[in-house]
Amino acid sequence: MKNTLKQLSIFIENKSGTLIKVLELFSKAKIQIIASTIADTQDYGIYRVLCSAPCEAYTILKEHGINVQLTDVLAIAIEDEPGHAALAISALSQAEVNILYMYSFLWKGRGVLVMRTDESDKALEVIAENDMDLLNEDNFII
């Protein structure tokens, strides 16, 4: 069973018209975006995308000359109730695993925390020890 999820990290200029160019490529290839996030920065941004076919999307974006990277991220399913995100993160925090970035969304009635950590092996140990529900791409088949 795979432990990680493939996320697309797409480098885009902070300028109108750049995001739509990327989105149109997903649209044309009929690849569904499951979750995505972009931060507010000065000159450029990294658009992070979970989608239904990351490897295919990667190839298409590459072919169109777009700066893109496939990044391994961890995804944990939690109950969609107050307090569960805190529980999950406190376990990682106690083990001194740093989170580089994180975002969350709802998937089939459950919460999903997606994160990149500085030490993914250690993070995986913590997740296993605490019996957390680790997701992989099989969980996101549409």
Binding site: S9, I10, I46, V68, Q69
Partner: peptide, 13 residues
């Protein structure tokens, strides 16, 4: 222009 996106970490960029 960036040749390859070698990281998805803002700090490294």
């Amino acid at each position: 222009e960036l040749e390859e996106l070698f990281t998805d970490d803002y700090r490294r960029l």
